[in-house]
């Protein structure tokens, strides 16, 4: 019998709760949110499996929790991870903030010492993109370059995080070393799976450090994302950006024998739905409810470092999240 504490029931957290409720081996879900009405709505949806708890990161974790699923806004997840480390409970977090992921990676020694697994960046990108990169790497003898692109935000908090990422100086791996980019490059046109199609993407730093940790041999790693629409058009936008389509595209270059080839994978769907499914399945991995999809070791890592990619993708496929491969010819 496994008990999961779900913290944060926003656009992504609510979907993650539904995914946890549909996972065999997870028998009890404790739902915590600063808005009691949202937590209660999810509890009603999940039925007898769920109960709401009043909890904040300043308090110790409720007793009997086997894993924590954190869907708090990016940056707010760090105190929760520290609380989980102190309680010795594994945690998966969906935060995509560059600074908070860097802070989590700095907690690696504490996580190793306490024997706790921390899965950082369990969303669309970072998250599913890491799994796709790991899947692409299985086709190659060596990995030289990884280029991740992302379109879409899960909800208002995710949109704010994405806006912040676009205003910060991004990081990228050049020559095998993680560097801060002093001058932001121009936009690049990226082709995502339909219906998202072609979008202009700008360099951001979300998830680069996690990919660098999982693929230390890659000489170049970049992450790009579509910048959210300006606020001035807010009146004409839909109320819930989570209803919008989101997509990720992962281009991995490597060698098969002497030939240098790319492998391009992608996925498209509702951003919050994909992120919620990834967070739900990652939390199920932590409690051992889905042993075939991988096993988390103590320490702070991204999904690429602990999953069996094809089993993880198969599990997502069963939940309606599909992945695609770009097949085409180069035109120089």
């Amino acid at each position: 019998m496994s008990t999961v504490l779900l913290v944060g029931v926003g656009a992504l957290g609510a979907r993650a709760g539904r995914q946890l409720g549909a996972t065999r081996g997870i028998d009890r879900i404790l739902v915590a949110d600063r808005r009691a009405d949202r937590a209660e709505a999810l509890r009603k949806f999940l039925g007898a499996k769920a109960e709401t708890v009043e909890w904040s990161a300043r308090r110790p974790l409720p007793p009997g929790v086997d894993a924590v699923a954190c869907a708090l806004p990016a940056g707010d997840d760090v105190p929760l991870v520290i609380a989980a480390l102190e309680s010795g409970v594994p945690i998966a977090t969906s935060g995509d903030n560059q600074e908070s992921i860097a802070t989590l990676l700095r907690l690696n020694d504490e996580a190793l010492a306490s024997g706790v697994a921390v899965l950082a960046g369990c969303g669309l990108a970072p998250g599913l993109s890491d799994v796709l990169a790991a899947h692409a790497a299985t086709l190659l003898d060596t990995v030289d370059e990884i280029h991740v692109s992302r379109a879409g935000v899960a909800g208002p908090d995710s949109e704010a995080s994405m806006r912040r990422l676009h205003s910060e100086r991004p990081h990228e791996v050049i020559g095998g070393a993680l560097n801060e980019v002093r001058r932001r490059s121009t936009h690049e046109l990226i082709w995502f799976p339909e219906p998202v199609g072609d979008k202009e993407c700008e360099l951001i730093g979300a998830g680069v450090a996690l990919l660098h940790k999982s693929f230390p041999s890659a000489a170049r790693i970049t992450v790009r994302a579509v910048e959210p629409e300006p606020r001035s058009t807010g009146w004409f936008r839909r109320n819930d950006p989570g209803d919008n389509w989101g997509a990720t595209r992962v281009e991995v270059w490597g060698r098969i024998g002497n030939a240098r080839v790319p492998v391009i994978y992608g996925s498209v769907g509702r951003t919050a739905t994909i992120g919620g499914a990834v967070l739900g399945v990652a939390t199920a991995l932590l409690v051992g409810a889905l042993p075939e999809i991988g096993g988390a070791q103590p320490g702070v890592t991204g999904l690429a470092g602990c999953v069996v990619p094809e089993a993880f993708l198969a599990e997502l496929d069963r939940r309606g999240i599909t992945a695609s491969k770009f097949e085409g010819v180069p035109v120089a």
Partner: peptide
């Protein structure tokens, strides 16, 4: 000097190995 494929389409992953 390899060039990434630019003309083509997306094929949904399927099969036992999802390739």
């Amino acid at each position: 000097g390899s060039v990434a494929p630019t003309i083509g389409g997306w094929r949904q992953l399927s099969g036992p190995h999802f390739r």
